[in-house]
């Protein structure tokens, strides 16, 4: 029997549409429900007060601050190392089996479950280096977790700078480093920033890596040094959702809302940077 191409096409479209809806609908539902149930909890007190009455009242200020500290610490650690590694891999390393394995390994590291990073951080930073459960340990663990993201996106950004720019620069007598410094890096910065911010978003939202390395169950004051424990939004959410009975739904969804807003905000910044870059892209 001859197939009717028109009908085959309609069937294909139908399945593609279903696949798309399967993704879009749950995501929209999550966002809508969290906004609906969480938004009423948001007020100045919720954002600026410490948790009270065994976390059943008060605010989530220490958790917000803790998350910001952790994310900042992770980026201070991961951005320089990640960027330098990306420059090495894209500009200096030769194309040989060893370097191909290294590149593949880095891409795969991005897929390692985050709880594995948590255990690694526990063993290395908390126990071996004796940093204890502290902001330092947590930041380093998160930093290691987002390194593969930063390296991979930075490398892609560097490699997307046209080869001809490097050739001209070298042909004008610039050294390799001058070429990277003056020509390659400036043209790759938007891509590097995008990757960094995506990494930040990931670091802000993860629970497992901070579980054993920094997160405090209940600590109604702000950390004073990087060797202190701290509360963090994702762990706080986990605690008030599963470990503490009778927490008002409003507070739980409010916390989720703040976390979601923080991550979405970071992703939004990344999208804006990328959009501006595309519009300005000149080659």
């Amino acid at each position: 029997m001859k197939r009717n191409p028109h009908r085959t096409q309609n069937i294909a479209f139908f399945f593609l549409l279903v696949a798309m809806l399967l993704i879009v609908v749950p995501v929209s539902l999550i966002v809508v429900i969290i906004i609906q149930k969480g938004l009423p909890a948001i007020n100045w007190q919720f954002l600026s007060d410490v948790p009270r009455q065994g976390m059943r009242a008060g605010g989530i200020f220490p958790a917000i601050v803790g998350t910001i500290y952790l994310v900042t610490g992770a980026i201070i650690f991961a951005l320089p190392i990640g960027l330098l590694a990306a420059i090495y891999l894209s500009e200096y390393s030769k194309d040989n089996p060893l370097n191909r394995i290294i590149k593949l390994a880095i891409v795969n590291l991005a897929g390692v479950p985050s709880v594995v990073y948590g255990l690694f951080g526990l063993a290395l930073f908390v126990v071996f280096f004796k940093f204890g459960a502290s902001i330092l340990s947590g930041s380093l663990t998160l930093g290691i977790m987002i390194l593969p993201i930063i390296i991979t996106t930075s490398r892609e950004a560097l490699e997307s700078v046209p080869q001809s720019f490097r050739e001209v620069s070298l042909s004008l007598g610039a050294s390799k480093w001058q070429t990277i410094r003056h020509i390659v890096l400036p043209n790759a910065i938007p891509g590097i920033l995008t990757g960094t911010i995506l990494g930040l978003g990931r670091a802000a939202g993860e629970t497992a890596p901070i579980l054993f390395t920094v997160a405090a169950f209940y600590l109604p004051q702000l950390p004073k040094s990087i060797f202190d424990q701290a509360m963090a939004l994702p762990y706080h959410l986990y605690v008030i959702s599963t470990q503490v009975p009778n927490v008002d739904e409003k507070i739980r969804y409010g916390t989720a809302f703040v976390l979601l807003a923080l991550v979405l905000f970071m992703n939004l910044v990344a999208i804006i940077i990328r959009y501006k870059f595309r519009k300005k892209k000149k080659w």
């Binding site: 001209v168 620069s169 042909s171 004008l172 610039a174 003056h182 080659w283």
Partner: peptide
């Protein structure tokens, strides 16, 4: 020994900066 390439390839900089690039480097 300077080189002119097949495809005109100025840097994505201003006209001025393109010309002073060499001076900036050296």
């Amino acid at each position: 020994v300077g080189m002119v390439f097949q495809r005109p390839n100025p840097f994505p900089l201003s006209i001025y900066e393109n010309i002073v690039f060499g001076e900036k480097i050296h």
